[in-house]
Design a binder for these strands. Sequence first.
RNA 1: GGAGGAGUGCCCGAGUGGUCGAAGGGGGCCGACUCGAAAUCGGCUGAGGAGGUGUUAAGCCUCCUCCGGGGGUUCGAAUCCCUCCUCCUCCGCCA
Length: 429
Amino acid sequence: MLDLRLIREKPEWVKERLKTRGGQYPIDKVLQLDERRRALLQEVEVLRHERKEKSEEIGRLKKAGEISLAQTIAEQVRNIGDRLKILEEELKAVEKELFENLAAIPNIPHESVPYGESDKDNVVIKKFGDPPSFSFQPRPHWELGEILGIFDFERAAKITGSRFTIYYREGALLERALINFMLDLHIKKHRYTEVLPPFIVNEASMFGTGQLPKFKEELFKLEDWDYYLIPTAEVPVTNLHRDEILPEEILPLYYTAYTPCFRAEAGAHGKDIKGIVRQHQFNKVELVKFVTPETSYEELESLLLDAEEVLQLLELPYRVVVLCTGDLGFAAAKTYDIEVWSPGQNRYIEISSCSNFEDYQARRANIRYRPKGGGKPRFVHTLNGSGLAVGRTLMALLENYQQEDGSVIIPKVLHPYTGGLTKIEPKKS
RNA sequence: GGAGGAGUGCCCGAGUGGUCGAAGGGGGCCGACUCGAAAUCGGCUGAGGAGGUGUUAAGCCUCCUCCGGGGGUUCGAAUCCCUCCUCCUCCGCCA
């Protein structure tokens, strides 16, 4: 949520900055409702004050035994009450509409974000490693999965439906190894605090991070409950501190969480239908930070490096792009995507998204901190990034470490997590 | 799932229709005492919003809202009624 005061004071600047995202946002509507709200509020407050004073007067008169005078005044106050009721209802309606419109406005892109209309305008800012060269035609991971006997899409479709996968043996082991490897790296080396949150959250949490109300069609909702399956650990972890005032001394807070993620993938028909790239359920290790406003852009850079290190240690080639204004997510002010190289599909595929939300989520979720030495609470800045999407990491690992016979070498850093397994051999059958 | 009990400020805790944004205590901050500290004494110490003053600052002033959430009764609600949520105790069930 944007600061209403900012919109009130610099409407033209806000409009101009939001124009870079493309799309239409109800700034004028907000301004108009804000004005109406304040006019009504003043009227209401005058009446409330009058009612309060007269009610107190009645109390005094009754105590003094002036019953009939008290009744006369009570009659007057009833009239005030009737008028108030009408005005308060109108005020409430205006506030609701104002809130809804304000909540529909996305975050303002940071000034360092390049202008652009779509993902084609994103800018590559760094590359790590070179795509490996193969003496044979590298296979996509779903073919390797077949050879190795570690994926089962058919039975997953039977049990649930499309876009679900079953992992067997080394596939399941490797997924588990990757989760533990990533968590250990972030916990021990990068000093994040491990969290294992609920995978189902309520509506207020979804609102806090910006998934609701606008992106409902991308979520799985539990029938007859106002509960949703999380699309990312960002939701429960950022909402850890919803409606809290944190002492500045404990900032910055770093959290890492492994969770499954559930996404409806509405509007993705026909996209990435093969393999494990786009699933309704996938595993992810997430990084979340709560920081002071002054440090949030440095924190974004270090968050990105923390995520990148996973790929560096796995020796998987990747590049980092900065999302342009037109491709930026709703709540983000700036986002870096990490894209890993897929030899089997001959393209870079997004494996992490690291964003600074500034105070946009903090305002929606009411997450503040008390400055050192006291003073008014201020909104924190929140950040998060994948560290990393586990399924896609497994995909990259299979494709980049594949051998001609379909076997796959397991990189050294994972050996402590695979019980000594160093290579996956083709299934004998 | 059934039966009871409870939710008040940073924490504990009083308040059951009128001047209560809320006694008292703890904690924290400031000051006095002290070479310094402890103890003691004094003062200050919730959040949000609207308006005024001020350089669209700090500060100051006036007012409104908030005693788990929402709704209602009343001239007036922390206090009465309804409803939802959360926590605790007992029973049942269960991994």
